[in-house]
């Protein structure tokens, strides 16, 4: 990983449900709502909510992340949608 500093899970979790802008080593900016950050690879999963309800999900690879800034702190605006996005029937069976 490009980040020599080992960030705590609590640090990554603090971004979940917030809208962030992630900058990558190629100079690009990736804006979206944080679904999760993989604690293993530090890859960030961002969701883009489009007006026509068409959703795009973007994964920014941990090794390519240069910086991350919160642009919207409102954790409730997309919480429900973010929570239910990748839950399937299989998962509910799993937790029994």
């Amino acid at each position: 990983s490009a980040n020599s500093e080992n960030r705590s899970p609590g640090f990554w979790r603090s971004y979940v449900y917030k809208e962030v802008e992630v900058t990558t080593v190629d100079g690009r900016e990736h804006r979206g709502w944080v679904h999760t950050v993989d604690p293993v690879s530090e890859s960030v999963v961002l969701v883009h909510f489009e007006e026509d309800r068409q959703k795009t999900v973007e994964i920014v690879m941990g090794h390519a992340v240069k910086g991350i800034t919160v642009v919207n702190e409102d954790m409730d605006s997309h919480r429900e949608e973010l929570d239910h996005m990748f839950v399937t029937a299989d998962d509910t069976n799993f937790s029994k």
Partner: peptide, 19 residues
């Protein structure tokens, strides 16, 4: 708390990959 946070993040990531 750290284990809870790490589990939350990792499970969501694994489900995302599956999804």
């Amino acid at each position: 708390q750290e284990q809870e946070d790490r589990s939350f993040l990792r499970e969501r990531f694994l489900h995302f990959l599956k999804g």
